[in-house]
Amino acid sequence: MSFFDELGQYLSSANNREQIVDTLAEHCYLALLPLVLGIVLAILVGWLGNTWPRARGVILVVSNLVYTVPSLALFVVIPSLIGTKMLDSINVVVALTLYTAALLVRPVLDALDAVPPAVIASATAMGYRPARRFLTVELPLAVPVLAAGVRVASVSNISLVSVGALIGVGGLGVLFTDGFQREYFSPIVVGIALTLVLALVVDLLLVLLRRVLTPWDRAAAPVKEEVPA
């Protein structure tokens, strides 16, 4: 039986199709919620490091350390750290939020550093208080640099979610363990293809979002992309 016959057979089953749709939906949730939470967390931490330079060193060391911990290891220790059940999807969300934040803290700090001091000074001179200045002046100006990091984080999240299948919560990853156990190519290939498509679609949406958020940047030269991690 050729691979395509196998694939056709696999996709013709309503059960399988339902499983694909369900796992895809779960995958989106497991990848994108942490992306949003991680961005917020990274901005908070970045703000801290920016207003309180002494915290910077600690922040960078901790975020490097978090990033160093392998995904599977993080997935399995989180339940004991926060007291959730082993099969709870919260574990994956928390772990990926931490990764996203760890990945983005440095770009956030770099981006905030790169805001011209003259801009900050004139905003202060016009009477902005620090919090408002941060949200309406510094943060928007940091978006171009931040955007590159967010794109890397989104791709990495989307591909990492499937590792969660090993602890029972893995979105499309379940298709991989399924295919492996049944020695069946189709679910694995479908899972890989959908992961790639999802990553591509989200990436395009992020590019669009960045354009919408930074209308002033379009006239200027494009920002050089960060070296992806």
Binding site: S159, S162, G173, T177, G179, F180, E183, G191, I192, T195
Partner: peptide, 13 residues
Amino acid sequence: ALPTLGLVTFLFL
């Protein structure tokens, strides 16, 4: 963007 687990199970099969 390739999922690790998917790639490795695929290669194993």
